[in-house]
Design a protein around this nucleic acid. Structure first.
Lengths: 307, 307
DNA sequence: CCTAATAGTTGATTATGTCAACAAATAGCT
DNA sequence: AGCTATTTGTTGACATAATCAACTATTAGG
């Protein structure tokens, strides 16, 4: 059974779908008066993109009836937009190619589509346009998770500290019901970091997936000999992508380069995923103690690693 | 002529449109095997939603041919899903209404659509769902500016502090090229706030537009007599919606209730929009001094207001 | 050489949508 | 009132879009 909130979400998505169907409908009207209809344009577009298509492959890819595709191709061939040659190695197959006049028409169709869209986007300012694009990309990332995701580990930038604080607070509240005192602690730790950071031996890194915040890690100086690993976090939707491992490796490499002799970190027994990562990276738990923290009864742990 | 960046934006929007067309297409496939096709469902749905429709209004709204609508209505009437009554004040018009059996069918179609969507949204966690909804609402707000946007001023929640820090850092860097020292200052101010807050006389508020972060303000105790207004921010895309004014009012109201005698705030001469808001709210600039701050040469100002 | 499978085409048919002509009612004008 | 123009909704004729199954030509595999 769905909760009310989730059902609301579904209804809101449906409402957006209705809205967007109408919106796209208005755009498609711009193609009226053209010699080609939408399926024909799609076929022409695909042939132009992929120069070695055959009718069957096309029908399969576009999820169209082979007979229908055959008729569309006949029309496009008759109009001189495509031509085709029998595959000498298999005389059943006919390789499709776009002709110069096909390219030309496709170009003008592209211009038309762009102009239509341009008119609809006209009321938007440039920053609003880039906001629109980034909203759309985010929606695609959410709905099409299979879309290739680029993982990037990069040094800290302006604005990252706030994001790290926000994500720690929200995530640990969601996953472990930790309270506001945890947010306060992270805030204090990072304020301390920002105020006293020595870039030569202290750093923070952010993991991004397709430009989105996916995780964080910090290395701070505990003493001349010892570095402390802090604020490791991987967003739940990006777990299993080796992001945690990469962040820890990045951090360890840096600490070695800085000449630290050992590393230490705090965690607690309930953070099983993080603990596995620490173990894999060569850390061992050297101390454990119970204490009430963040509104829960935690078993705090200290983990160390010799570099 | 379009700039390259704008053409990129247009191409990206087109790419999103192709993606979303496919996405909606997958959803619509769930309606196969029903006695009604998509246009018929849309008509039924609209009649159910708006009980005083007539055929022409419907055709207009759904951008369908009146003749086609007429035939669809004939089918739905024959199936007993709708009925209609001649408008007594204009006997050309016939008011459309849905019948109980129409409601019933619509309900089952709704369930079907919801289930289809539910399957597509299944991989998303609840927070991702609400993110999706808020992204969609924002897109609608951009593309359909007439649509009413709900502004909400709410008290601080877990996670807000990080967001406020991030937005301050990024926004002032973008708009005024302020450097990391500003991020550090905000971080420190809010860490201080989180650690020492006395909820009876200190508060923070967040402005949301359709669930999205739109702005912030804080009231902190300077002395028993004086409250300090801090961290006022309104996101650029939501300016001109009276959000700044509402945030300041909220803050002033609270300070009055707490029994403060006066309020004070820091700003600088270049923040012209904020200064206008302060003036309107009854603040006056009582002190001004030049100082190098945040990587710029600022004219700092102190503004006060007697409550 | 036979059978099964594949590539593509074609005829028949259905589904979907458009257009123009039309009747009925109303609005606006004189 | 009476005339004309407009609006609301319907209908027949037609055009477009899409599907299905039968069919030819070719190839693969034994």
């Amino acid at each position: 059974m769905l909760t009310t909130a989730q059902q609301d979400a579904i209804d809101q998505v449906r409402s957006f779908n209705r809205f967007y169907t109408r919106h796209i409908g208005i755009l498609d009207e711009g193609f009226l008066g053209q010699p080609l209809n939408l399926p024909e344009i799609r076929v022409l577009f695909e042939v132009a993109k992929e120069s070695t298509l055959t009718a069957n492959v096309l029908a399969d890819y576009l999820r169209m009836d082979p007979g229908y595709v055959s008729r569309i191709l006949a029309k496009l061939l008759k109009m001189g937009l495509l031509h085709r040659a029998t595959d000498p190695s298999d005389r059943r197959r006919k390789q499709l190619m776009i002709t110069p006049s096909g390219e030309e028409l496709l170009q003008s169709l592209n211009d038309l589509a762009r102009n239509n869209l341009e008119q609809l986007l006209a009321p938007l300012s440039p920053p609003q346009r880039s906001e629109l694009v980034s909203l759309m990309n985010r929606i695609r990332a959410l709905l099409e998770p299979s879309r290739q995701q680029r993982v990037l580990i990069r040094p800290l930038q302006l604005g990252d500290l706030g994001t790290v604080i926000n994500r720690h607070a929200v995530l640990y509240a969601t996953e472990y019901q930790w309270d506001k005192s945890f947010e306060r602690t992270v805030l204090e730790v990072l304020a301390q970091f920002a105020n006293t950071v020595d870039e030569t031996c202290e750093r923070g890194w952010i993991a991004e997936v397709d430009g989105q915040f996916a995780g964080s890690i910090f290395a701070v100086k505990e003493s001349d000999e010892t570095a402390r690993l802090r604020a490791l976090l991987v967003e739940p939707q990006f777990r299993g992508m080796q992001i945690g491992r990469q962040l820890i490796e990045q951090c360890i490499d840096f600490c070695r380069q800085c000449g630290y002799k050992q590393m230490t970190l705090w965690t607690c027994s309930c953070l099983t995923q993080a603990r596995k990562l620490y173990t894999k990276a060569g850390f061992t738990c050297t101390k454990a103690w119970d204490e009430p923290l963040f509104g829960a009864n935690l078993t705090s742990e200290s983990w160390d690693k010799v570099l």
